[in-house]
Amino acid sequence: MNIFRFAGDMTHLASVLVLLLKIHTIKSCAGVSLKTQELYAIVFATRYLDIFTDFISLYNTFMKLVFLGSSFSIVWYMRSHKIVRRSYDKDQDTFRHYFLIVPCLLLAMIINEKFTFREVLWTFSLFLEAVAILPQLVLLQRTRNIDNLTGQYIFLLGAYRAFYIFNWIYRYFTEPHYVHWIPWIAGLLQTLLYGDFFYYYFHSWKNNKKLQLPA
């Protein structure tokens, strides 16, 4: 494992923990999109179908369990916790899941390396991860209410994506036959979706101001 891959995994982990800790300690999920969190739970559930069948390393298995556990915990908090769920911006978080899930599933059935149940769902999880942040970005635009933690959450997710791209570039030049179009294109698209948000994030950080998105 190279340093970019490890940094990517750690920022990904940090993003999820920041969100979980925020919800757990301040008992509020204001500004957090449940739609995005449910999509991430689906992403991990469909990607890690191999968790008990294909052993790669203790690190991999452990991280998979952490991502599955944390994403489902966040969804549970937002839907079922008697205090947290009251702070959920239900009326603003109106993005429909199936607008993203159905096209990703269809695309995964057309574009895949092998037409099998696991391969199609694995490809589906890559496509869905690429667009899963959209309900969150829409919610931010609507409420324009971004506390520091929500901003940091999205910033860390973006950093994770950027590190993974460096990881792929590194592996492309250091490992023979390392060419994987599907995750690369899905990953590149996902990183681009953060570009706009990053612009405003850095702008507010540079001017030492609270992050505000334009209407």
């Binding site: 990904h12 790669i56 991999n60 390396e113 036959h177 390392y178 994987h180 995750p183």
Partner: peptide, 10 residues
Amino acid sequence: ARSGVTKDEL
């Protein structure tokens, strides 16, 4: 070719 290579990523 992918199995064992990309699937070692998360």
